[in-house]
């Protein structure tokens, strides 16, 4: 498929609120990007107010609302950039380029897809689940978080017709007690014909290995330190069976069978 033209859009923050432990949801008015972004693609954001930090920050998109031209990002505060981001007030202007990269896509003939999202990685699978809900294929979604309070995407998934959701918490405060890999294993071994996974690299590796053992295709969303975000600088390469590929535009969604895990 021909990729959409990249745009660098001056956007406006509509809202930016804490929604869980160290978790924030920012809504950005970005009509040119929100209207064409596909599930799993990301935006490269120049966070204002930190000019001595040169680089943009890549964020996968959680939800888009084409009618209101808004895209939302669920993010965890992990360092200086995300901390500054968490303090942006509504109406703040920022630059974002996008939509960047490959996207989640159901293989031809797949009828029972499984989506596995760990931590903040549950968010970038939402648009894919929405697409599968709208098309009538449906999906099983397994999401995991450390605690009940961190399961912030659960309600959104539960509202999608045709999507059955299983939640896991590390501390057992909600749903399955333990890592989400265990409920995921049940579905992989019990009839899923495609797996999409997003989360910490160790989670994706475990899920990719169980999918491979079951002979089920699996697509993962990779993350690397990134500079240009457009495929020029070769900072973000992922080791694959076919050599080093750029996480930004050859990914971020990779066929798990080609990824050489670190």
């Amino acid at each position: 498929m021909e990729r959409a033209t990249l745009v660098d859009e001056t956007c406006s923050v509509r809202s930016n609120e804490q929604v869980g432990p160290n978790l924030f949801l920012i809504e950005i008015e970005a009509p040119r990007i929100a209207s064409v972004l596909l599930p799993g693609q990301f935006v490269h954001v120049k966070v204002p107010g930190m000019e001595s930090h040169l680089l943009r920050r890549p964020f996968s998109v959680y939800r888009t609302d084409a009618s209101s031209n808004v895209l939302s990002i669920l993010y965890q505060v992990v360092g200086f950039g995300t901390d500054v981001l968490s303090h942006l007030l509504p109406a703040t202007s920022l630059c974002a380029s996008g939509p960047i990269g490959s996207h989640w896509e159901l293989p031809d003939g797949s009828a029972s897809p499984l989506l596995v999202g760990g931590g903040v990685g549950a968010a970038p699978l939402y648009l894919f689940a929405q697409e599968l809900s709208n098309s009538g294929v449906g999906a099983t979604v397994v999401i995991g978080a450390q605690t009940k309070e961190a399961l912030v995407t659960l309600g959104a998934y539960e509202d999608l017709p045709g999507i059955s959701v299983v939640a896991a918490t590390d501390d057992g405060t909600f749903g399955y007690a333990g890592f989400c890999t265990e409920p995921a294993r049940t579905f992989v071994e019990d009839g899923a014909d495609f797996v999409a996974c997003c989360g910490p690299e160790m989670l994706m590796r475990i899920v990719a290995e169980m999918a491979a053992r079951a002979g089920v295709p699996c697509a993962v969303s990779m993350e690397r330190r990134m500079a240009c975000g457009v495929g020029a600088c070769l900072s973000c390469v992922v080791d694959t069976a076919d050599g080093k590929k750029r996480c930004c535009i050859d990914g971020p969604i990779f066929d798990a069978r080609e990824v050489v895990w670190q």
Partner: peptide, 30 residues
């Protein structure tokens, strides 16, 4: 971008780090 005769794989990741008003890179002429 720098070109060699046969092509080079470049260095292992991580290849970049952000520093004060700058960045370090270690691409290795991939």
């Amino acid at each position: 971008k720098g070109v060699s005769l046969k092509g080079w794989e470049g260095n292992d990741s991580p290849r970049i780090a952000e520093t004060a008003s700058g960045m370090l890179n270690s691409i290795g002429l991939q």
